[in-house]
Design a protein around this nucleic acid. Structure first.
Lengths: 211, 211
DNA sequence: AGAGAGAGTGTACGAACGTACTAATTAGTA
DNA sequence: TACTAATTAGTACGTTCGTACACTCTCTCT
């Protein structure tokens, strides 16, 4: 036995390649048309496989969706969180994460804009396990922005009168709208509006004339 | 002939009632789960009709979707634009429309939040006639905010250094995010964050300390 | 009152869906 | 080299979709 105590099937190299190819196509498709339009037949057609060939890689459609979300999360972490948090602690990280997000939109990391913004809109109202997962993920993102704002406030880089949760909301809002409008109008220059909004909001929080 | 030169079928009173009942259910369903999940069978089940009974009211599914959008637009006009624009010209109307939108969210006019925000997310990426219609509608909304901002600037109520298009973007962003997050978390109190953001943004544009 | 037509039911068809199987193939290992 | 199991194709089943058509019922108008 090459694998000590493992019930998992031994994956073959070609199967591994197919698996990642399927997930890449799935992320692209889901970012454009949503998780709901993620079907075995659709993916099979785009990849030149048969429906059962695709389905064989996942226990069910539900598992395909969950694996796709997990794969997209890894990409988001690599493309947004990692570079954004590489900035200096405090207001630097707050700016860094916002700029990293806008850059990630501009670079077209996902064909349909932000993968999680698509998810947010698709599962904001419906209930169920995916809704809860999306809500938790969003809470995490917003909570992180709030945490960065709180740190910046403690470091004296933003005004103590600024509520971190409110600042996180006001930064998140233009990021999301930049995503939606740039996709809707197919005009990446809209992202510059988001950039200006972030700059104004952080600048205002930094040197508010309240005294 | 009671109707001079009309090819349209004479609608019976019971048919008229069914028609509006179908559109009401369709708006509710589409605001929650999107236009894509708007099917004859689904509506029939909710209304106690048969699938063909529902389908008989529309030439095709496409027409059902278009009529549903048109009906929602009438409600939006009545619930948001009309009360919002009733305020005093200039910055009053700008505030009025934003507040009317947030109030429309709070009152739960549509079960799934803002009907058009749902559409925006659903058809931001895909191409087609519905995408174009959504894009045009959104351009109209954003253009109206920009026009109100421009008017307010000409009246001297906001700083001349403020770009109307940028201000419109910065007002629209928290409105949208308030919608999505209040639905996602099932917490209407999030709307208060949007209200605060609008207040700050308009206030800042109004008495900017730039000279 | 009677005729005409709109309203709604029931049925049917083809397409696409997820899922569950079998069979053939092929890569990896012993 | 030969075996084993992962990979993939292929097929079939049941459901749901949009659409179409035939049919009954009932409102509305003359």
């Amino acid at each position: 036995m090459t694998d000590h105590m493992s019930d998992a099937p031994v994956r073959r190299s070609d199967g591994e390649r197919s698996h990642v190819a399927i997930l890449e196509a799935a992320m692209r498709l889901a970012s454009v048309e949503g998780l709901g339009s993620l079907t075995f037949g659709r993916l099979a057609g785009e990849l030149g496989l048969t429906k059962s060939g695709v389905a064989a890689h996942f226990d069910s459609r539900q598992h395909l969706q969950e694996e796709t979300i997990a794969a997209a999360q890894r990409i988001f972490d690599r493309e947004v969180l990692e570079p954004g948090l590489a900035a200096q602690e405090g207001i630097g990280q707050l700016e860094g994460v916002c700029e990293a997000y806008l850059s990630y939109l501009e670079r077209g990391v996902f064909a349909g804009g932000c993968f999680f913004a698509q998810l947010l809109a698709e599962f904001d109202a419906p209930s169920g396990p995916i809704h809860d997962a999306v809500a938790d993920g969003q809470r995490g993102w917003l909570g992180m922005l709030e945490g960065l704002a709180e740190t910046a406030r403690q470091r004296g880089e933003i005004d103590t009168a600024v509520e971190p949760a409110q600042l996180a909301f006001e930064l998140y809002a233009p990021l999301e709208l930049a995503n939606y409008l740039s996709m809707l109008y197919r005009d990446p220059s809209i992202i510059e509006r988001g950039r200006a909004a972030v700059r104004d909001t952080i600048g205002r929080a930094g040197h508010a004339d309240h005294g």
